[in-house]
Amino acid sequence: PIRFGIKAGVNLPNIIKDDGNNNFDTKLNPGFNAGITLDIGLIKGLAFTPELLYATKGYKAETSFGEFTQTTHFIDIPILATINLGGSGLNLVVGPQVSFLTSTKNKFDNGFGTVEQQFDEDSDKFKKSLLGGLIGFRYDINDKVDLHGRYALDFQKN
């Protein structure tokens, strides 16, 4: 059977920097994700579960001039397999993900004032589509409601 669903959650994004680009520390830039889900049962204990999500990512960095915050907005399409663990409510969720950058906002706060820049689909500055992967767990509280936790990492650089 095929079931539609919705999901929403808190995102705790950060970045992984290139070697040789580690002269500043970054912090989490908390955000959110929300979207629609599909659950297509294949065989007992295995389902194909693609999703269409809106998600914010990015990072914060303390510089000697103040705090820099970059918030990136994405359409994420995770293409997932959901594997039930031992007939319990616990499932392993794993698969690739394609992410499309829709906009980027940079905020700079030096303690006296704030400067903001917005880039909308600026393909010269930021990569517009990224391939990544995710792994996580989903706990089914009942037939309709679940709680889940995930880790996602892009394979390509932004």
């Binding site: 990512k57 409601v145 709680l147 889940h148 880790y151």
Partner: peptide, 15 residues
């Protein structure tokens, strides 16, 4: 250049 990584927690509802 950098790669995005995201920890997330949330809930889902299936119709």
């Amino acid at each position: 250049e950098f790669k995005n990584q995201v920890f997330s927690v949330g809930f889902g509802y299936k119709f």
